[in-house]
């Protein structure tokens, strides 16, 4: 523990948000940002393994994967892509507003981001429900689906496509749910007026996370929904 004199020296006119081990808020902010990016890098490799598994199996069982991929609802997937892009815009604007001490605008943009995130999950729910009804969920109740064009049953490996589909979109959805929790926490703090031009690091960091989750979807959408459409 620092002695009172030392603390008094260090914190003479220090802002309340400044932790004692940082010389100033700019350094503290840079450390937070770097830490967040390091976390996101681990996430890149976390999702990367799944993307790689998908790429390898798609290459090995091309017909099964393309046929199963064409069974996904492109309209719902594209709508969700647009919903997420709009939510990234509102998140960026929330960071912008919080950095300019605009409390009401910050709260508004954060709430909008949450609504869009919830919309995404709602659409995802509709899609998942469809898959359960059509017995496209891997497991004992899986029924090998038919090709949309030829009405011939797809190869058995179409089940693998749906396994990877549920793993990847499910993991992404878990990230979205965590993101919604984080943004709701920001709404509470923003309403208390805790963010200002001087200090808005939490909004900035959750923003990084939110945009990262958007980037994952930017790759999931073409890989799961689009590749193979031209064969129809």
């Amino acid at each position: 523990m620092a002695s009172p004199t030392h603390a008094a020296l260090a914190h003479d006119d220090a802002p309340p948000e400044l932790r004692h081990h940082f010389p100033d808020l700019a350094k503290q902010r840079e450390a937070s940002s770097l830490g967040m990016w390091v976390f996101l890098v681990t996430e890149v490799l976390f999702f990367g393994g799944m993307f790689l598994a998908y790429a390898i199996y798609r290459e090995t069982h091309r017909r099964a994967f393309e046929g199963a991929s064409n069974l996904l609802d492109l309209k719902l997937g594209a709508t969700n892509t647009i919903v997420l892009i709009v939510s990234s815009l509102t998140m960026a604007l929330a960071v912008w507003a919080s950095g300019r001490s605009r409390k009401n605008a910050t709260v508004l943009f954060l709430v909008l981001t949450m609504l869009l995130g919830a919309t995404f999950l709602g659409i995802k729910y509709v899609e998942y429900k469809q898959k359960f009804e059509r017995h496209e969920v891997p497991g004992p109740h899986f029924v090998v689906p038919q090709d949309e064009e030829t009405h011939q049953p797809l190869p058995r490996q179409s089940e693998m496509f749906f396994s990877l589909y549920f793993c990847m979109t499910g993991l992404h959805a878990i990230h979205m749910i965590i993101g919604l929790g984080l943004v709701s926490w920001l709404v509470v703090r923003a309403r208390r007026g805790e963010f200002s031009e001087r200090y808005n690091t939490p909004v900035d960091m959750v923003g990084l996370y939110w945009h990262f989750v958007d980037i994952i979807w930017i790759y999931l959408f073409p890989l799961l929904y689009l590749l193979g459409r031209h064969t129809l």
């Binding site: 808020l25 815009l89 300019r100």
Partner: peptide, 23 residues
């Protein structure tokens, strides 16, 4: 500029429209 957040609203809107077009 860190504390103020970077980029203007204009840049954000521009990126947003580009993302929509690319989708």
């Amino acid at each position: 500029a860190h504390g103020k957040g970077h980029g203007g609203v204009g840049a954000y809107i521009g990126v947003f429209l580009t993302l929509m077009a690319l989708t």
